[in-house]
Write a protein that binds this DNA or RNA. Structure first.
Lengths: 195, 195, 195, 195
DNA sequence: TATGAATGAGGGTTCATTCAT
DNA sequence: GATGAATGAACCCTCATTCAT
């Protein structure tokens, strides 16, 4: 088995495990069992330490997440529509990739990640943030949005996403639909220019 | 040293520890060291088990938090002003009681806590949510707010709070001020009636 | 409260505790709670260490046990009748003083006791043994019993008692009656002279 | 070192330890030290928990014990001879496998073991009892034994065995021989038909 | 005498990681 | 690359005992 395939297999098993039993209980033993590995030592063989594995997990999940969102956003041309698509995509991702989402929420804010500012997580978060701020700035420039601080608003949008997802962890699809609608309207009101 | 004083001391040390190294790494040993105790066994002597200690920590922090917010909110009479005070108080609390806030964020959503549905934390979160939803409902009735789903909006406000605080964990006071301003405006726009 | 009374109270609580939860789980804390003491430290104050407490427990229980048996035996005059009374008394004691008996069985053979040959337990056991052997020797001399080794037979009688009691720990009164009958006959047969 | 060999080594060390210091004091640390292991964690690595280790210890000892007794009994054809062989085998086993025997006596009746009704120990004790009762019943039917309650007599035989072994824990070989002789005669007298 | 907080050793167990094969 | 036994630190917790009050 190739190194790359093995790593991918372990990362996938780690995601399943964290989603299932939570971050603190996702031990190497559990991950190895779920991956069908003969020994947890194999994980140590392929990853320098736990931190590297978790970083890889985050990179993997965030990659899928970002791709999903970008595809949705790029399907629209006006800035407000793109923002709406951005919001909606977050909630749809939760519905379609629940394990990914639970893993992300489970890891979020854990010391191992937050400690090192240079982690994939921090970098990805920041580039996401920058991209959204840029989009908002564009909307303001075009007169679609009112004059707000794009950095702060980007922060709010992500905060809303995280907070909502965190609280809707176990929500039924129907509830997700209601929230999706209300959230879109809410951000619309918060951002649109006051003619 | 009296039982009550010792418990308070341990709770305080636990808060510092969780704020500093995160919930999963806040072991008895670390807490005992920070409190200057001779042995981690002393913690077990004063608390039946880890769960009781954490519950106490949450009760303590949340008590201060709630008192702080309630005082700010009660200083106003109109609903929109109260909502604005509510939002502002969250960010001010972070500035003034950073360790408390970090501890709350660090514990939030941990399985051990969430498992017990009767924990102080879950109950307070629920009652907070209900109280805010009621406030919003009142604002809608009085015509101060537009017609939105108060449950969903309450969710958004808390989500914003959690998300913003989580991302501003290490923010400088100046940044907090900007965000405070922008956030207030943003929620104003999102809620006010469009006459 | 007088020293003597306090010790007696603690010993009584220890007996109850051991009978209830077993020797290994009978901690000072449990015993103190059952005695209504404010602190387990009080036990340490009145007894030099655990070993002394347990020794006292054994002495106390064995004292009652011996008195009970002696009274029954002394009510008879012929040796075979005395032996029968001796046997019967053991089983009756189990029925009437279950906690005492369970405590004795629970402690029996624990290292703390067996280690020191000079304990009350060992001495009491030995004097009991000597007394029974003497009785048997008398029976042989009088021609009531066949010619057996009185030391060995005394050993068997005690062994039977211990083993039977140990296995009848949870037996119903009815079963105790049957066993009592059979056991008396059995020892009759084993000891009586073959005319 | 292979898993199986390591487990066997640990079981052997546990037997030695229990025989030496008694069941309650036979900690992982002690066992590990006696086995020459680098850490008590290794025991946890090979056994799921203490219960599994003790179960294995009992299975191991009881296996040797049963094999030894059965071989002796099967060498005879008449029922009284088999009964005699059964009794004698117990005492010989003590002489030849002192640690095994002490371990068995030390564990016997411990709550942790008795709690699980499905333990090897409980099952073997039960089946042993049934087997002996059956043998006695056969002896009565053939007229070798007098008319007694076979269940009760089986109880007595086992009680005698346990009690005698318990009291002869530290006996010299010579004493064992005397007791062996006397015990055989005693049970002969207690069981044989009075023609 | 009595209290109850404190001590510190030790309990079984889990863990990420190492390493000989 | 893969295996799986081994390591040793750390986990929470219980215990008998001590000691200032």
């Amino acid at each position: 088995m190739t190194e790359r395939a093995r790593r991918a297999q372990i990362v996938a098993a780690a995601i399943e495990t964290i989603a299932d039993v939570g971050y603190p209980k996702a031990s190497y033993r559990q991950i190895a069992a779920r991956a069908g590995l003969s020994s947890s030592g194999l994980i140590s063989y392929h990853f320098q330490n736990r931190s590297e594995l978790i970083t890889e997990v985050v990179r993997d999940v965030l990659g899928r997440f970002a791709a999903f969102v970008v595809e949705r956003v790029d399907a629209h041309t006006t800035v407000p529509a793109q923002l709406r698509a951005f919001i909606g995509a977050q909630l749809d991702f939760l519905r379609l990739h629940r394990a990914d989402m639970l893993t992300l929420l489970g890891i979020q804010g854990e010391a191992e990640i937050a400690a090192s500012e240079a982690t994939a997580y921090a970098r990805l978060v920041e580039s996401d943030h920058a991209a959204l701020a840029e989009l908002l700035r564009e909307g303001i420039r075009l007169g679609d949005f009112r004059e707000f601080d794009p950095e702060a608003m980007a922060l709010f949008v992500f905060a809303l996403r995280d907070g909502v997802l965190s609280r809707l962890r176990d929500a039924a699809p129907a509830e997700l639909d209601t929230v999706r609608e209300e959230l879109t309207t809410m951000i619309d009101n918060a951002t649109r220019s006051q003619r």
